[in-house]
Design a protein around this nucleic acid. Structure first.
Lengths: 301, 301
DNA sequence: TAAAAATACTCCATAGGTATTTTAT
DNA sequence: ATAAAATACCTATGGAGTATTTTTA
């Protein structure tokens, strides 16, 4: 049994004439008759009812014609699908995102990806902490993660996407809101609200090191798991927080932001994948990602 | 592109080793490598990543493996389906039934058919009048009809199933209920409730001819479209009706039945199909039908 | 009797086999 | 050094062509 048999049978069934079917198949009539006979012998069932005047499908032949067409279409589709997979136009990506980019970047990214790579099936998980992203990537639960370096894991490939400035989130009416820019030293007496998870996040490490540089130990008032909670706590007057500039886009009432000065008051956004993951579509996803990241998700350069 | 290519690819993908795959396929390794290469050339996509130590699937290969397995399974399934169709184990039958057999015969028949011919897809339409059945058969809306002969249409094939006795349906307390058997002549003064539709039904023709034999014209009080309505009208005291014995199984409160004597007080039940319909499953359906009809649907021989 | 499918045969393209080389670990 | 795939070349099965016969409407 070969696809040839199906192609020949479909031709004869459609033409209802061996001669015309043979012409359509660019072959002579006798070998076509022979192949159809071989097919019927192999199936153990007559598919055609022949007279010299007319070729008719038997009931079995009618059923087989439907299936044969489906199979031939599947064979073509399978080849095309393989090509799309190879060229990175088809595939699945589950993408994780740190809290600070979840609300600003992820929606625009999801829209752009669905529009520009419609063949790729996306899953998104926002508000993830970096250590969880690393574990999920390695476990295969994520295929790509938008995270905050540094990442100390050689099994992951990290691509830097952009650098975000840092802002201080202040409750409305806070005394520091009178200033347009703040230095880290201005926060010496403040209560800090920080992220907490199963491990230290890059953002928290940075905040701690910035304070140490300025010669003080930050006073941690609350630990929260999500950026939205962080901002809500600030709005509630429970303390202040340092965050990447994109959290401004959360726009929670009662919170004001001020840029933090200093060369080191910056944090990178990067994309992480498994270093051994050579899925062809990841390259395409990454290039869309780089373009979207450059144009959206931050309010200034 | 032939099924051979898919079979070979599946074998190599599963064995992850050209040599073992070739052994499984009862062939030598070089022609197997050759065919896989031909497949990849035709698809324009690498499916396997070869080293001398390991054969791995590319991403395109992984996608293609799934499709190839599906296609090979479809090919087998298509052959088996064709055989089942040819042997009458698969197909579709829409079956019509006259009102007088709808409630007694049809449920038992449906159960038996679904049990004994699970591969066949059945549709049932009960309470049909014979002229409508004939038209529906010819239009292809029905494939088989349980009807009351005679049928005067050479394009239909009629198979007699059994002969039903006739009963008189009487309102409870009617004077004739004192007798155990009735002659047609006893009904001379009664008001008749008869079937009506787009044409005369066999049952009505028979009632009229029985009365004429007895020397009177039946007085028709009401015309109804369904057997259930007929019996309900009798129960309501609107008249009497003559019907095939199986209508007894309707069991409507307020109606009593008495057998009608006489050699001609009988009517056949038959199955009708299109004479040119040679669908293999019809024979199987018909034989189940004959067995069910013999054992059920009538209260006596 | 005429149109079309089935036979009978012939040929050659290519699937498959054998021997060997190349390659990556 | 070795296991395994690729290459080169050969063989032969069977798919396809040509000529003819058979069938039935």
């Amino acid at each position: 049994m070969e696809l040839r048999h199906l192609r020949y049978f479909v031709a004869v069934a459609e033409e209802r004439h061996f001669g015309r079917a043979a012409a359509r198949l660019h072959m002579a009539q006798p070998p076509l008759s022979q192949q159809i006979r071989n097919l019927e012998d192999e199936l153990g069932t007559m598919l055609l009812h022949r007279t010299t005047r007319r070729v008719d499908l038997t009931h079995a032949g009618q059923a087989y014609l439907l299936r044969a067409r489906e199979i031939l279409a599947s064979v073509s589709a399978a080849g095309e699908e393989a090509q799309r997979v190879a060229s990175g136009l088809e595939g699945r990506v589950v993408m994780g995102c740190v809290g600070s980019a979840t609300y600003s970047l992820l929606p625009a990214l999801a829209r752009a990806l669905r529009e520009e790579l419609p063949g790729i099936d996306f899953g998104f998980r926002g508000e993830m902490l970096v250590p969880d992203q690393v574990a999920a990537l390695r476990a295969g639960d994520l295929d790509m993660a938008l995270l905050r370096p540094p990442i100390d894991d050689t099994r992951l490939a990290i691509t830097k996407l952009r650098t975000d400035r840092l802002v201080v989130a202040l409750p409305e009416g806070h005394r520091l809101t009178r200033r347009t820019r703040l230095r880290i030293d201005d926060l010496r007496e403040e209560a800090f609200i920080v992220h907490a998870g199963r491990g230290r996040s890059a953002m928290d490490e940075l905040v701690t090191s910035l304070c140490h540089e300025a010669g003080f130990q930050p006073r941690v008032a609350h630990e929260v798991a999500e950026s939205s909670t962080l901002v809500a706590f600030v709005a509630a007057g429970l303390g202040i927080a340092i965050a990447p500039e994109p959290v401004r886009s959360l726009g929670v009432a009662g919170t004001t932001y001020r840029l933090l000065s200093g060369r080191s008051a910056r944090i990178d956004l990067a994309a992480g994948t498994r270093a051994d993951d050579d899925a062809p579509h990841l390259g395409r996803v990454l290039s869309v990602l780089q373009r979207v990241v450059a144009s959206a998700g931050t309010l200034s350069a």
